Simulated assay, not measured.
Amino acid sequence: MPDSSRPRLLPMTPRQQLRAPRKARRLTHLVLGLLILGVGVGLFVRAGLGLSPWDVLHQGISTRLPLSFGTVIVLLGLTILLLWIPMKQWPGLGTVANTFAVGPVADLTISVMPEIHGIGWQLAAMAAATVLAALGTGLYIGAQFSGGPRDGLMTGLHFKTGLSVRLIRTVMELTALGAGWLLGGVVGIGTAVFALSVGPLTQFFFRYTVVDIERR
């Protein structure tokens, strides 16, 4: 049984998101979450043990089409946004912030962080990156300003089906992984760890990161 005493995510239009209470705390969660998520993405790349499932898909598509890796990320994100329409999901401040913040933070992390050598250090970096990605996701989605294209699809399916975020996120990651691998994307041990653990970890962090806007 879900714990009704805990704050919950609410489906809201962009206007409702901006009018909802506790804006200072929600904005803090949004900014901090996107920064942490971007660092996690960059650290995962530096771990050198495989790409995350969505990046395996991005790479797989880019090997089949005359498009750069970054262009595929943008175009796939826009395509996923179309799936929001039948679920009545609305892009909000979090969607825009995710689009423009995570990539640059990840690039900055990669540029300032040296290459990681030694399997022990690589495994530690991989584990830390996965936890950071889940924490960052929990914080910025918990701010209730809407999620990025992929996370918005996750929450939209959660609202539509009533299934747990943990299950939906895991299925999405495994689907992206399978499609990316079939298209030629690079898979490693880090890919499997991320796909299987980021959903449960995100669900765990939601217990503490969702801002309660129902109780004044």
Rank of each mutant, 00 (worst) to 15 (best):
A20Q: 05
L18H: 07
P14K: 08
L182M: 15
G162Y: 04
L34T: 03
S52Y: 00
T71I: 09
F206C: 09
T13L: 06
L82E: 04
R22F: 00
V198M: 10
P86G: 09
S52M: 13
T191I: 08
T63D: 12
L30G: 02
R46G: 09
R6C: 10
V45D: 06
P91A: 04
M126R: 06
R207D: 15
W84F: 14
L82Q: 09
T13A: 02
T130E: 06
R26I: 03
F159N: 04
I61S: 03
G136I: 09
G92Y: 04
F159M: 04
E115L: 14
L183I: 11
R6G: 05
F145V: 00
L51T: 06
S5L: 13
P91W: 02
L35K: 00
T109W: 01
A125L: 11
L135N: 01
D55E: 15
G50N: 04
I168G: 03
L82S: 08
G120C: 12
L174Q: 03
G184Y: 11
I116K: 06
L78V: 14
Y208T: 08
T130C: 15
A125M: 12
G48R: 10
M1Q: 09
A24Y: 01
L34Y: 05
D151F: 04
W84P: 04
F159H: 13
V96A: 15
P114N: 11
P21A: 02
T99G: 15
G152W: 01
S52T: 15
G92S: 07
L163V: 01
G48D: 05
G138L: 03
Y140H: 08
L67S: 14
L76K: 09
L167A: 15
A128D: 00
A195C: 07
